[in-house]
Each structure stands twice: as structure tokens, then as C-alpha cells.
Design a protein around this nucleic acid. Structure first.
Length: 556
RNA sequence: GCGGAUAUGGUGAAGUGGUAUCAUAGGAGGUUUCCAACCUUUUGCCGGGGGUUCGACUCCCCCUAUCCGCACCA
């Protein structure tokens, strides 16, 4: 970063703090790393970005909003792979209190302790009871999962269950898949969105808002049938050249639809959400020339993804990943199915029912059971694999390698015709995941505009009006002759409109008040002057151009 | 986690072993017919904890936070 850019960054963060947009949290107690407050101006900014995000997706018509807890039982994140991928298992030496990684301690006792579940590690630790490398004792506390997820205990005392604060909102969408599927009348594609907090106990939070320990995230899970080629309409983006950083082809500029045709974007639904994401970001004020899509290299991909594009935005900290659009395949639903034994599937009806001729053998339970006892199940499986032409008695090799003699009395001929109308499958998921704090940072960074007025430094925050925290400022030119009262009345009537925020300000010169409004990005200032008293008009002053126009109060 | 720098009103800075100065911002009043003007007045600061000392914002130790490298990063 150059000195000039560093100076700008310092002035920007100073302004954000001074004007109550973004401030270090708990500062009177010394502060806390990676935690920030959105202040009296920033709180509303955050809310408007969240709302714009929700509206953007819900308006697609087949996307619903849900809200799941941030406190998440251990089993959920174990199933999703987060416990294995995100945690180290630690145990404390009860003698010297030194913490050690359980998998490291157990390396002499297991070929690959890193691959073990927590319960298996605990078992192995209890049995092997290795020496403490620090003090030589053999007395270990119970294993706890620790590191990138915040541990907690759900419930008190012996009934407490281990859990975590969620590291992403996505899992809630997967665990409530059945309700979503039913709500959507069992038809795909559909999506679910969630906006909320996520938590990661980062080793080293840095760069202000960029890496946080508690952060605002917004995720969309879009469930699709992998066998249906969806025909997305890309016509509205056909003339927009996107900046793409492809894994194989490097830096290229082309439309989303061409990138899909050329196979650079590997899935058209991923491409569709890239285009929709481009719209969202530019609609709220991200500079499109400072936005690019970067494809993950295969070795960089998260443990669940099969194709992934990040949206990176250029700001004071360089190119920063702000959105990830991942094709997660069936990874998550399958993982939760395997862990719970519940069905998380959708049904696909065949165009023509499949007619299946079944012609073979099965076992007669009444004779096979007593004859083969524990092996009866394996015998059944083996017999059902036999061709219809088989002769009995027959010598059969079971799955476990054992050989048995099956007589005619043990088997039954099976001959029937079945009609199968469809099948169950695990939907695939395309997930656009947004880091709201990082996006807000870049909105502010891109909007922050320094100039000089005469001798003085002048700051304008050119926020898009869809996210500007304050919609209007109302100023009486002077607070006398009834101008003050008239301005107050206008202010009150603006405040009474839903989703409208107005500030009344009568202190300081009019220029000073405009400057204060410009600094927090108020798009329109309304001024009551002497003429207002005569004809009930006021001046509207545009933030970016400084242009004024006169309109009747009734038309505000 | 390692190495380096830093921490003084809301913000930006100065300074001293005897409780602190300046600019700017904020409040109140005045003045001004539209872009940080002016006058009067007022509020507000030594990151936290130990130690040395008659006395510590200042010297020493520890902690916390911030910034910059390195490492980590779904």
C-alpha cells in the first residue's frame, strides 16, 4: 500500500468511527480483536444492505427466507465435515495444565489419528494414556474440539451437550431440507436464503472489517435436479463483459453466456448466479470496474465444492474475496443423510414408467433361517444375484468368502413384472455465500470521496440511495420567522413514512450542515428558506452534484 | 502463534517525574437570504493492571488493542 493510500485508509476509518458507522466493539473495556459495532449510522446501513439482498433473491419467486439458530449441536457440524476440517482436538494435562493435540499424542498408537472421530480418539487416549511431553505425567482431561469454531455447551451440568456457534448459515438450510421441499410442493428447483451471524475463532483477525470473529453472512442454497439442464435466460447480461480469472485460461473478459459455452464456467446455474450476483453488487453501489470473478483452483476448493467462483472486490486492502459461488454437488444432503439415516431426497418421475422384468431366485425364510442362522442374510443376498437358469443344490460363495451349499428347499422362484414410475435422488446445490461485512466495507471504500473546497479537505460519501442510512436532512436556513417550525414539520412528516429516515439540523452555517450530511452520504438535503414562507416550496440539494431545485412541499 | 512499531479530549497531533497544550469537531447563545465564515461561552483526554517513587501520563514489568511483515485462512 502506498503512503497516499494508507493516509486515505486512515482518514476513512477515522471518519467511520467519528460519525458512528463502524467502530471497534467494547472499546471502553479495552476492545476485542475481530469484533466491530455498527454504530447509529452503520446499523441502518447494514440493515438496508441485508434487506436489499433479501429482496434481490426473494423476487425470483421460488426462493424463501428461513432463520435457524446460531447455536448448533456437535452432531450437525460433525456430519457436515466442519468438525474434521475446522477443529483440532485438544486435551489438557491434568498435572501441568499444558494443552496438547490429541492426534499428535496418539501418533505412536495409530497409523492415522487425524482421521479418527472425537469418540474414537477419546477411546484411544483413554486406552493408550500417553505421557505428557511437557511433564511426563499420564493424566489427561477429556478431549475438546477446539480452534476455528467457537465451542459451547448446550444445557447445564451432566445434561449439557457439546455444540458450536455456527461457522456458516448454510447447514440450517440443509437440515430443514424436508420442510423446504414440502413447502415448494415437492418441485425443484427452489432455494432458501438466510441472513445472520456466523462465528469463526480466527487465529489472527486482521485488516479491520475484512477478517472478523463474528460476522454477518447471507447465504442462498439453490437446490437443483442434476439431470435437468436448466435453460437460464442470459439475454439481459449478453452485453456485459465480466472480468474472469479462470483456473485454466487466466484473466479473460467475456460475457457470462460465452464463458458457459466455452466451458470456462462449468455449470450454467453457477453462471446464472454469478450474473445475478453481479446485478446485486452493482445495484447497491459496488464499482463494476473493481469487481472480478476468480475461479478456485482444484486444490484450493473447500471440502464440499466441485466448482467455485469467488467474487473479489478491489479496495484499500487489495482484491478481497466477498462472495463465493460454489457448486456443492450433493455433498451436504448426502452427509446429513448418512449421519442421520433420514431421507433428504427429491423425486423424479420418469416420462414413461420403467417396466422391469424380475426373473430369478430368492430364499425361503422358513428353511434358510434354521439352516444357515447368522449367515441367512448373506445367503439371501447371494441367491438373489443368481441367474434364473441356476440349478439346485448349488455351491455358493458369500460376500465374506465363505462357501455354502444351498438346496432346492431353501429357495423360491421369483417371476413378476414391476412398473417403476420414478426415482428418488439427492438434489445438487448451488450456493452463493456473501460476506456482508466485507461488502459493506467496499461500499464505503468505493463511496468515500475526498476533494477540496477552497482550502479545506471535503469528504463526500457517495452511497447509492438504496443503501444510504439517512434518506433526508431537513435544514431551516435560519431558525427564525417560522422557518424552523416549517422545517420541523417537514422533518416529522418524512419520519412518519415507513422506511424513511430524516435528520433535522439547525446548528451551524448552512454550508457546514451540508458538509455534515455529505460525510455520511445523505442523498438529498431539503432547505427551508425565506421564499418557502411565501409559496410553500423548498430547495432540494443533490449530494453529488450540489445542484438545487425548488419543489412544493406537497410533492415531497 | 513469531518479529517490529504504536496507544494523550469525538478526531488529528504536542508535551513533562509535580494531572496536561494545540487544531478540529460537539453543546448553548448571537450573527449571517444557501455550501465546514465570524463572535461569545461551554463540555471533554493520558488503553488496563502491577511495580519503583513523597508523587508516575512520563521510568520498569505484565496484559489488552491497533498497524505492518511472516505463518494461518471455508
Amino acid at each position: 500500500m502506498s503512503d497516499a493510500e494508507e493516509g486515505r485508509l486512515e482518514r476513512l476509518t477515522g471518519m467511520l468511527k467519528r460519525r458512528g458507522i463502524i467502530l471497534p466493539a467494547f472499546e471502553i473495556h479495552g476492545g476485542a480483536k475481530g469484533l466491530y459495532d455498527f454504530g447509529p449510522v452503520g446499523g441502518r446501513l447494514r440493515n438496508k444492505v441485508n434487506q436489499a439482498w433479501l429482496n434481490h433473491w426473494i423476487s425470483m419467486g421460488n426462493i424463501v427466507e428461513i432463520s435457524c439458530p446460531t447455536i448448533t449441536p456437535y452432531a450437525v457440524l460433525e456430519a457436515s465435515g466442519h468438525v474434521g476440517e475446522f477443529s483440532d482436538f485438544l486435551t489438557d494435562c491434568n498435572s501441568c495444565q499444558e494443552a496438547s493435540r490429541a492426534d499428535t499424542l496418539l501418533e505412536p498408537h495409530h497409523p492415522n489419528p487425524d482421521s479418527l472421530t472425537k469418540d474414537d480418539l477419546q477411546q484411544l487416549l483413554s486406552n493408550a494414556n500417553p505421557q505428557c511431553p511437557a511433564c511426563g505425567a499420564n493424566d489427561w482431561s477429556p478431549i475438546v474440539a477446539q480452534n476455528l469454531m467457537f465451542n459451547t455447551t448446550i444445557g447445564a451440568g451432566k445434561s449439557g451437550r457439546p455444540g458450536f456457534l455456527r461457522p456458516e448459515t448454510a447447514q440450517g438450510m440443509f437440515t430443514s431440507f424436508s420442510a423446504l421441499y414440502r413447502h415448494n410442493r415437492e418441485r425443484l428447483p427452489f432455494g432458501a436464503v438466510q441472513v445472520g451471524k456466523g462465528y469463526r475463532n480466527e487465529i489472527s483477525p486482521r485488516q479491520g472489517m475484512i477478517r472478523l470473529r463474528e460476522f454477518n453472512m447471507a447465504e442462498l442454497e439453490y437446490f437443483i435436479d442434476p439431470e435437468v439442464e436448466t435453460d437460464h435466460d442470459f439475454s439481459q447480461w449478453s452485453s456485459i463483459q465480466m472480468n474472469l480469472l479462470s483456473d485454466n485460461d487466466g484473466e479473460i473478459t467475456m460475457s457470462i453466456s460465452s464463458a458457459i459455452e466455452k466451458g470456462i464456467i462449468r455449470h450454467s446455474t453457477v453462471g446464472f448466479f454469478m450474473a445475478k450476483t453481479f446485478d446485486f453488487l452493482t445495484n447497491i453501489g459496488i464499482d463494476s470496474s473493481k469487481l472480478r470473478f476468480r475461479q478456485h483452483e482444484s486444490d484450493e476448493m473447500a471440502h464440499y465444492a466441485t466448482d467455485c467462483w469467488d467474487v473479489e472486490i478491489l479496495g484499500s486492502y487489495g482484491w478481497v474475496e466477498c462472495v463465493g459461488i460454489a457448486h456443492r454437488g450433493c455433498y451436504d444432503l448426502e452427509a446429513h443423510e448418512n449421519a442421520t439415516g433420514k431421507t433428504l431426497r427429491a423425486r423424479r418421475e420418469f416420462a414413461q414408467p420403467k417396466v422391469v422384468e424380475i426373473d430369478g431366485w430368492t430364499t425361503d425364510g422358513a428353511t434358510v433361517g434354521p439352516a444357515f442362522r447368522a449367515l441367512a442374510g448373506a445367503v439371501k443376498n447371494a441367491v438373489e444375484q443368481l441367474p434364473s437358469t441356476s440349478q439346485f443344490p448349488a455351491q455358493i460363495t458369500l460376500d465374506n468368502g465363505e462357501s455354502v451349499t444351498v438346496n432346492l428347499e431353501h429357495v423360491k422362484r421369483v417371476q413378476r413384472t414391476e412398473s417403476i414410475s420414478g426415482e428418488w435422488y439427492i438434489p445438487h446445490v448451488v450456493e452463493p455465500a456473501f460476506g456482508i461485512d466485507r461488502i459493506i466495507w467496499h461500499l464505503l471504500d468505493h463511496a468515500y470521496h475526498e476533494s477540496t473546497k477552497g482550502e479545506e479537505e471535503y469528504v463526500t460519501l457517495r452511497l447509492n440511495e438504496s443503501v444510504a442510512p439517512v434518506d433526508y436532512c431537513v435544514f431551516p436556513l435560519f431558525e427564525k420567522d417560522g422557518m424552523g417550525q416549517m422545517a420541523r414539520d417537514i422533518h416529522k412528516s418524512l419520519c412518519s413514512k415507513s422506511a424513511t429516515v430524516s435528520i433535522y439540523d439547525a446548528s451551524g452555517s448552512i454550508g457546514r450542515r451540508y458538509a455534515r450530511a455529505d460525510e455520511i452520504g445523505v442523498p438529498i438535503c431539503i432547505t427551508v428558506d425565506h421564499q418557502s414562507l411565501q409559496d410553500n416550496t423548498v430547495t432540494l440539494r443533490d449530494r453529488d452534484s450540489g445542484q438545487q431545485s425548488r419543489v412544493p412541499i406537497a410533492e415531497l
